[in-house]
Design a protein around this nucleic acid. Structure first.
Lengths: 347, 347
DNA sequence: TGGTTTTCTGTGAGCGCTCACAGAGTACGC
DNA sequence: GCGTACTCTGTGAGCGCTCACAGAAAACCA
């Protein structure tokens, strides 16, 4: 009522937000009862609940997050920890989408996302101190390596946390991920289905579960036809790695007619090498990638690839952290999200 | 002192953050004086200031944002208003970078970024209500159209705000932008410098200042050689617009040997049309774009283009909003950021 | 010297919310 | 009828900070 009057009488000035007091007065109850309704607690009569809900709608009440966080002694923030800044937004196109997805989910729950980038050993210590200082209520860890000290520190702190991707040595932390092995197997089988005989792979990131699993999936799909001389092992998921890896493969076997690249950027690099080597795609060689990033749609020919639900990955991780923050525990400790094969022109 | 002891004695549990009380006790002053130092107010003795600064370092004090926002009656949030969701992260590659840049600058100042997407007329009303409700302390407006009602509403509310890009009809709102006209002129001149004789342009977004200014810059650079039949006018900055626009240009004059595309996506589309028309780039036709987005590096040949400092644009906008929030006014009311020509292989 | 101005410091109240506690009302069993 | 459980509601205190006010100390001027 008040808010509305002010708005009409003085549409120019910013009017004050309604508080829990205004709602209580409007509904004829005390602020304690309003707080109970707001937090979904039991022991509130149906009459009171209805009156309060009507009052909330009437005065346009929205909870003041600052006051709530202060009273609850929570920071209202979740950390998103990313390793290796050089890869961010460049080589790993998924990190941006993961961040956006997590941010959306957290915003909806009135949580703030704090991005922490870890580069050096000193960063690692600083972040550990920060996490222990009560500045965040939980953490999402992206692209952790095998020997990552942060994950251990978080487990020790008993800070609610979720990993995106599942490293082998951290079974105690819940995680969300995609079935890299299954997806790699599927797209390789699909590539074989186009009639290719000599299929190679440009692998990368073999110090992470994602990289190893993609190679394992490829191997599974190839079965007895697997030939290790047709696997080029690169360090990064980059365009340059694709250029180099394809040259290696071509040197191993000039008759190669199919390539599974561990990322779209690698596939784009492979396309370039094939072009300069005078091979046509998909005529002479079929090429498939992984990620369904902007590389895939901007490459010529457009890449057949595996779509990673990166945004969902971030959103799901955020939900799992919030569940831990709220309940103090977690039902499941792992979740696999579905991937999808996107078939375009490169194979 | 306390925090440190706890940390050592019990490295597993998350220890409590130091408050302004702890600092005051450690420094032997009252919390009022500590608050004064924290906020850079005058009338604090040098001795007190030094003792407090030492105490802050010792106990590892960091200000509790929730408590501060509550006491200051501020939301600690700045809105980023984006029009037209379909273009976000797809056609307009800059919006993502602007968002990231603004977010970084705001985070550094302990502000939260709230993204508001406007699609329909109803959204527009909802956002106006939100802005007036005291939920944000300021706003950054991206890619406003000529007839945008939000800008007017913000001016009426006297909410601190900054526009990214400068629409003609909103002189009262401060803005940051790039010199579209100058940059278009420069890259066109550079293209002419490669010896091209018949140069056309694929223009787009002519309902915004950015689109019109790019066309104006092209016209300036062409001088007496400007030929309006060699301007293809498209609605959007998309790949599809580039494909269509280039076909139009080729139909107007098969001997065209240079093209200035109003965006990299358009340039990539033009490349495709030229390829299917049997023209080589840069041999037969020189092509330049605008944005230096991922299209530019992923196109073959890689595009010569104008680099937009999109991240800086966002950061600068954020700084200007914060300046208004803090001081209540603004010194300058417009800022032009420098662009840079990136010369690659397409011309 | 006394009086005025300027510099510096401490204290109480309050921002909007949650939580624990106390108390009132109702239902039930004997 | 009384005692006991359960349901529901209001109130005070406190989260960590800022701000206004009051008062003390120092500096200045006549």
């Amino acid at each position: 009522m008040r808010g509305y009057t002010e708005r009409v009488s003085d549409s120019v000035s910013r009017h004050k937000r309604a508080t829990i007091f205004d709602v209580a007065a409007e509904a004829g109850v005390s602020r304690g009862t309003v707080s109970r309704v707001l937090n979904g607690e039991p022991y509130v009569s149906a009459a009171a609940r209805e009156a309060i809900e009507a009052a909330i709608a009437k005065v346009g009440y929205v909870r003041n997050t600052a006051a709530r966080n202060l009273a609850k002694q929570s920071s209202g923030a979740i950390a998103l920890i990313v390793h290796e800044p050089d890869s961010v937004f460049i080589d790993d196109p998924n990190i941006g989408a993961i961040l956006l997805g997590a941010n959306a989910a957290l915003s909806a729950a009135d949580y703030q996302l704090v991005s922490l980038i870890i580069d050096t050993e000193r960063d690692s210590q600083r972040v550990t101190g920060y996490l222990g200082g009560g500045f965040v209520d939980g953490a999402i860890i992206v692209s952790a390596r095998e020997d990552d000290p942060i994950s251990q520190a978080i487990a020790d702190l008993r800070l609610p946390a979720v990993m995106v991707g599942r490293p082998d040595n951290q079974p105690q932390l819940p995680w969300v991920g995609i079935d890299n092995r299954g997806a790699a197997r599927q797209i390789t089988e699909r590539l074989r289905g186009t009639g290719r005989r000599r299929i190679g792979m440009i692998a990368a990131g073999l110090d992470r579960d994602s990289g190893r699993d993609r190679l394992a999936g490829f191997r599974e799909a190839m079965g007895g036809d697997f030939d290790d001389t047709l696997v080029a092992r690169q360090r990064f998921y980059t365009y340059a790695a694709g250029v180099a890896g394809m040259a290696e493969l071509l040197a191993s076997d000039p008759d190669i007619d199919g390539v599974f690249a561990a990322s779209d950027a690698i596939a784009a690099g492979a396309l370039e090498t094939l072009r300069t080597a005078g091979r046509t795609v998909p005529g002479d060689v079929g090429v498939v990638g992984f990620d369904d990033s902007s590389w895939a749609v901007r490459a010529r020919p457009a890449l057949s690839t595996v779509r990673q639900p990166a945004g969902q990955l971030g959103a799901r991780a955020a939900e799992l952290v919030l569940e831990q923050v709220r309940t103090g525990s977690l039902e499941s400790n792992g979740a696999l999200l579905a991937t999808e094969i996107v078939w375009r022109d490169s194979a």
